[in-house]
Nucleic acid binder design. Structure first.
Lengths: 207, 207
DNA sequence: GCTCGTAACTTACTTCGAGTAACCTACTGT
DNA sequence: ACAGTAGGTTACTCGAAGTAAGTTACGAGC
């Protein structure tokens, strides 16, 4: 006497699968989770998951991709009105840490779990970082066009790495919210970045 | 006519297994590697691996643990003679990046692959970071005893995160060696850290 | 230089979960 | 009412983790 299994339009079913999978992966880890288990919790049979995502790996990538899109949109919206590089950085970091707090579980999944399993999930995770480094890199370049591109990239990587790590740390420190985390990162990196930008001609000077 | 399988004392066999496993894991990834494959390349049968390491997960943890120990020893040796916080940081970072270059493959394993699979491997990987943050944290505290411990921790996490990420980036940028990587990180973080330390009383002032 | 004890090893399984082939059924438009 | 199909299921195969029970190389003691 199981509940009568309702049919669903594809898009809706897919979203439901992603939500359930994200939750279980985050709870138990990718390896420890079986496709049967996910299927059961969705209320559907295993081959449906394969119909929608092709493989266990595909399902994982789907989860990551959805989160990636959401993070990108939120960050882009947050930095839209920024005027100075400092404001750009601060607003971007803030949006990032807020995203993490809202998605604690799936963030663990993205960062820690996803990477190991499968080269293609790895790529998807790298894609998230790429978004972030691109954003930061472009801010640096737009405010100091003469900067060595390699250096700009390195700076962006440093900032992204710092935030990722601090985000994980924040999970164990509930007293440290998005605002404080942002302050910590800015306190460490901003003087160094500002000092470097100062030495380079501004866009106005070059024009 | 396979080569006559030589027996070996336990310690030696164990080291050999770790070396082979580290190599194959790094090449193919943890999931894509089978225990039979490792066993074959060691020249031994699968149950031997289980005799020595208990499980596939155990073998992975063994690999990580060995690398962790090596990294700790090298870093500790490198910073032994440092006098100022800046010198501490610089020498420590340098040792870290040099370790990475020497262990490119296994570093990928440690950072990316290991984390996903298994909570206990996750702990081992966290242990590596813990060593690093402890080291940095203790440097900060020894030079500025009045610093808020939470802030010191956050700073340490930020620096470790920055280095981890930059290390991954360096793999794709062979032109960026340990020296340049160290310079980049110091350029970004040192002004901020120095500024913060300056505001606090020195150990001498407190004594 | 034989033989006894055991550390080091193997063969031959069981089990479990990813992935698949082939078939089924509720809903839609006509 | 009925046909067509989107959405779904049952019942398998296959490969790899893990294990039980048996086997062999090798040094110690006589």
């Amino acid at each position: 006497m199981t509940a009568p299994r309702r049919r669903m339009p594809k898009a809706q079913r897919m979203a439901q699968m992603l939500t359930v999978a994200e939750e279980i992966f985050a709870e138990q880890g990718y390896l420890a989770t079986s496709m049967d288990e996910i299927a059961e919790r969705v209320g559907v049979s295993k081959p449906m998951l394969y119909e929608y995502f092709g493989s266990k790996e595909g399902l994982l990538i789907g989860c990551i991709h959805r989160a990636r899109t959401e993070l990108r949109d939120k960050t882009a919206a947050a930095i839209a009105g920024a005027g100075s590089p400092e404001e750009f950085l601060r607003l971007g970091l803030r949006a990032f840490f807020e995203f993490i707090v809202d998605h604690q579980r799936s963030w663990a999944l993205l960062r820690q779990e996803a990477a190991i399993a499968v080269p293609s999930a790895q790529e998807e995770v790298e894609g998230i970082r790429q978004q972030q480094t691109d954003m930061i890199g472009s801010v640096l370049v737009s405010f100091a066009p003469a900067i060595d591109p390699l250096e700009a990239e390195a700076f962006a990587e440093i900032v992204v790495g710092a935030c990722e790590r601090l985000a994980v740390w924040c999970e164990r420190r509930p007293s440290v919210g998005p605002a404080l985390a942002t302050d910590y990162v800015m306190a460490v990196i901003w003087p160094g970045v500002a000092e470097r930008l100062m030495k380079l001609p501004s866009p106005a000077q070059l024009a």
